[in-house]
Nucleic acid binder design. Structure first.
Lengths: 224, 224
DNA sequence: GTCTATAACGGGATAGAC
DNA sequence: GTCTATCCCGTTATAGAC
C-alpha cells in the first residue's frame, strides 16, 4: 500500500473515532485497527498521537473555510452590497453542508463542540490558524453591513453564529428520550436551516444595546 | 476527618480538575492528591471513576436549576405576564452567576461546553434529569409569551439560549492572541450581559419563518 | 515504508490491615 | 471510614527485521 493511502486511511479512522469517542478516549490501537495498519505507522507518519489531532482538524476545517471564502468572493464581486441573509448564508452553509455529509457529518458537529470547550489554548490556537482568514473577512463584511452596531458588541454577535449552528446540529442528533427535537430529524434538517437563518438574522440586526458599555463605566469610575 | 468532609473534598478536587483538563485526562490519583486522600476513598464513596462524574455534575447543576425555578415562581406569582426580557433574564442569570463565581466559575463554562458536545446519551441523559424540570417550565413560559411562533420553531430557539450564553462565557476567557475579545475581560463582563440580552431577545422575538416546514413538505411529497 | 515484538509507563480497581 | 500495597490491564513509543 502506498504511503499516501496509509496516511489517508489513518486520518479517516482517527477522524471518525476522535469525533465519536473523543481524543483521550480513543487509543491508537483502535485507530490503526480501523485503518488496517499498525501502531508504528502512526508514529512514522505523524510522530505521535498528539500530532495526529491537528492533522485531523486541519483536514476538516480547511475545505470549509475555502468554501466560505469562495462564497464571500462571489458576493463581493457584485456591485450591490449583500443582504444580511446572504452573508449569513454564505458563512453558515459550508458548515451546515459539512455536518450533513452522510454519516461523516453528524459526528463532526460534536467534535467541533468539544474543540470549543477544550481547555488550553493549544487547540484553539490550532483552530484559529486555519479559520482566522475567513473569520476576519466575514467580520469586516458584517461590520460594513451593520455600521450602527459598535464594533465590540458586533464582535460578540458574530462569535455567536458558530455556536448556534453547531449546537443545533448536535440537537438534531439527540434522541427524543434525552430531550431531542419534537419532530423527525430528517424533516427538521430542511426546516432547521430556515429557522436558524431567521434566528440569527434577527439577532444580528437587533438595534445596538443602549446601556453605556462597561469600558466607559469603569473609565468613569476610575476618574471619580 | 468525617465522611462528609472527605466526600466534599473529593468533589471539589474532581470538579476543578475535570473542568480544567477534561474527564478522561484526569486521573483519580490527581483527584485524590488534591483532595488530600487516597485512591481507595474514591471507590469507597462513589464506587468508580465513572460514577464520580454524575456526582460532580449534579452538584453544579442542581442549585442553578433551583434558582431558575425560584425566579420563575416569582415572575408567575404576579398578575401581569412577564416581558420577554424578564423571562430571559430569569433563565440566564443563574447560569451567568455561576460562571462569574471567582475562580470556580470560569472553568465550569468549559465543562458545560464539553458536556454539550459529549458523545453517547449517558452524559446528556444525566444532565437532562437534573435540568428537565426547569427546562420544561421555561419552555412553556416562552410559548405563552410568543404564541405566534410554531412550537417546533420555538423549540429550537429556546435550545439556542444555553449555547449562546455558554459560548460567550468561554469567549470571555480566550486570550487576545488566540482570538479573544477586543476589550479587557473585566470591562466586558458587565456589558456582555446586556449585549447578550439584546441578542437573544431579538432572536426569540423574530417573526415566525414563513417557509413551509419540512414536515409538511415531505408529507406532500409522500402523497405525490 | 511497513510490520512484529517489546519496552516503559501510568491507569483504575481491590484486598486487607488498622 | 481510612489507608497502604499490589494486581492487572491498556497505553504510547520504539528498536529492529523485512
Amino acid at each position: 500500500m502506498s504511503a499516501d493511502q496509509t496516511k489517508e486511511r489513518i486520518l479517516d479512522a482517527a477522524e471518525r473515532l476522535f469525533a465519536e469517542q473523543g481524543f483521550d478516549a480513543t487509543s491508537l490501537r483502535a485507530v490503526t485497527a480501523e485503518a488496517g495498519t499498525n501502531l508504528a505507522a502512526v508514529n512514522y507518519h505523524f510522530g505521535s498521537k498528539s500530532a495526529l489531532l491537528p492533522a485531523v482538524v486541519a483536514r476538516i476545517l480547511v475545505p470549509v473555510c475555502q468554501r466560505q471564502l469562495e462564497l464571500l468572493d462571489e458576493i463581493e464581486a457584485r456591485d450591490l452590497p449583500p443582504t444580511l441573509e446572504e452573508l449569513l448564508e454564505a458563512f453558515t452553509s459550508p458548515i451546515t453542508d459539512l455536518f450533513e455529509q452522510g454519516r461523516r457529518g453528524p459526528v463532526l458537529a460534536r467534535m467541533f463542540a468539544r474543540i470549543m470547550g477544550d481547555p488550553g489554548d493549544e487547540m484553539q490556537r490550532m483552530t484559529m490558524s486555519e479559520v482566522g482568514d475567513a473569520e476576519e473577512r466575514y467580520e469586516a463584511a458584517f461590520a460594513r453591513l451593520l455600521p450602527e452596531i459598535p464594533p465590540a458588541e458586533l464582535w460578540w454577535r458574530f462569535r455567536s453564529i458558530g455556536p448556534v449552528v453547531v449546537s443545533r446540529q448536535i440537537g438534531l442528533q439527540a434522541s427524543p428520550d434525552v430531550g431531542g427535537p419534537p419532530t423527525p430529524a430528517e424533516a427538521d434538517a430542511v426546516a432547521l436551516r430556515a429557522w436558524t437563518m431567521t434566528f440569527l438574522a434577527a439577532a444580528m440586526r437587533a438595534p445596538a444595546t443602549v446601556q453605556a458599555p462597561a469600558a466607559v463605566t469603569s473609565a468613569v469610575l476610575a476618574n471619580a
